[in-house]
Amino acid sequence: MRAAAVIGHGQIGARLVRDLLAAGVPTTVMTRSSAEVPEAARHLIGDAGRHADVAAAAAGAEVIFACFHAPYDARRWAAQLPGLERTVLDVAAESAATVVFPESAYGFAGVLAAEGVLRDDAAPAPVEAKGRVRQELLAARQAHPARAISVLAGDLIGVDAAPATSVVRMMITDPVAVGRRAMIPADPDVAHALTDIADLTAAMRRAGERPEDVLGAGSHRLLIAPSEAPTLREVLARAEQVAGGRRRRPLVLPHAALAAAGLVSRTILEVARLKPLWRRPGTLVASTELLEAGPASPWADSVAAMVRDGRSADGSPQRPGRAGDGASAEA
């Protein structure tokens, strides 16, 4: 691609900007406020809901990466995201650009609950409000004349994952990194789809580089990024191996406890409502077109990197000689 625009600079957008610049792609970043954007990028401050702002950011771009989001609340998603996406799609249609969206499995929770496996030809089957919002967004992308590609990922992991938005980091790897007890808000012994953010952004770039290969004669396509599906007990064991020290039995939270905690925390309530994604086996089958960019990063390496990063962020000394090197999962 000759030029790209990234709308949003959270955990996905920031990684994507670094990747694009490393590949030599001239990149414009639009954020709502000041942000630490790489000097090599063109940085604009604007509102993703304002047509003029998005058009200014997307000027000359072949691909617009829509990496904005809203607070983790189904009500806020329903109120904010449809308008933001419509504005970006309108700009893309006018400029003949392709829009690439990161997507979650929320709209397909019913498929995973019933089958345990999700492929890119599945029809949405939400089980709660956030999933219904995602279903509506996918339908709007499909109906819009702009070319759009949605790249679906599992729960995000990797050094780019923010503790506030990655359940694995918040509840498992960061606590273990500093010697605290991990909490598992799920059945710890079922396969759980995880995607390193680096793999998601690589998949999004691949989709944007050759959209004609993905879309064919259509205007929208859902793809699934390379992912792996360990159990969360395996994730915990790997985190403890890298951290060293005494192993501690995790606090495994039953669904009833999550639902009760949801009475005082909207975030926990939203997690609890996605019960099928946490209590049933779930595996994502990567789209063939995206596997050409490479397979999923080994989840054990991603977890190791998160633990080391958690120790560093806490100010604890890094321990040399631990097994496994993790290199490189708001949008």
Rank of each mutant, 00 (worst) to 15 (best):
A217C: 10
A256M: 11
S219V: 04
A217M: 10
L269Y: 15
E234I: 07
P281W: 09
A256Q: 15
A257Y: 01
L232Q: 05
A272I: 04
W278C: 04
V235A: 02
A217I: 12
I224H: 00
R247F: 00
A304F: 03
L290T: 09
L232E: 02
T288D: 15
L274R: 07
L215P: 02
G262L: 06
S297Q: 04
G282L: 07
H220G: 06
R266I: 14
D213V: 13
R266G: 15
A225T: 01
A229W: 05
G218Q: 12
A259L: 15
L258E: 08
R238G: 07
P250Q: 06
A261M: 15
V285P: 00
L223F: 13
L274I: 02
V214P: 13
A296W: 04
P281H: 07
A261R: 14
A296S: 01
R221C: 06
L236Y: 10
P226C: 05
P226G: 00
E234Q: 14
V303M: 04
I268Y: 08
R210S: 10
V303H: 02
A293T: 05
A296Q: 02
A261C: 14
S227L: 03
R233F: 12
A300G: 08
G262I: 10
A293H: 09
L236M: 09
R221N: 10
P295E: 01
Q241G: 01
L277M: 06
S302I: 03
A296I: 00
R246T: 14
A243P: 01
L253Q: 01
V242L: 04
R246F: 09
L284H: 00
S265D: 15
R221V: 10
P276Q: 02
G282P: 03
P226M: 05
E228Q: 15
A305L: 11
R266K: 15
W299E: 06
A237Q: 12
S219M: 04
P276M: 05
L215S: 09
T267P: 08
G282Q: 04
A293Y: 03
L251T: 09
R233V: 13
V235N: 03
L284V: 04
A286T: 06
E292I: 08
R210W: 10
R273F: 01
A304S: 12
P276V: 03
S297R: 09
E234T: 02
A286K: 01
I224E: 08
R280P: 05
S287E: 02
A225V: 05
A225C: 03
E212M: 13
A296D: 01
P211C: 12
P211W: 10
L236Q: 00
A260D: 11
S265F: 10
T231D: 10
L258I: 07
V242F: 06
R249M: 13
W299G: 00
P211I: 09
S287N: 05
S219A: 05
A229K: 01
T267K: 13
L222C: 11
A225S: 14
P250S: 03
P211M: 11
P295N: 04
A286V: 07
W299K: 05
I224A: 04
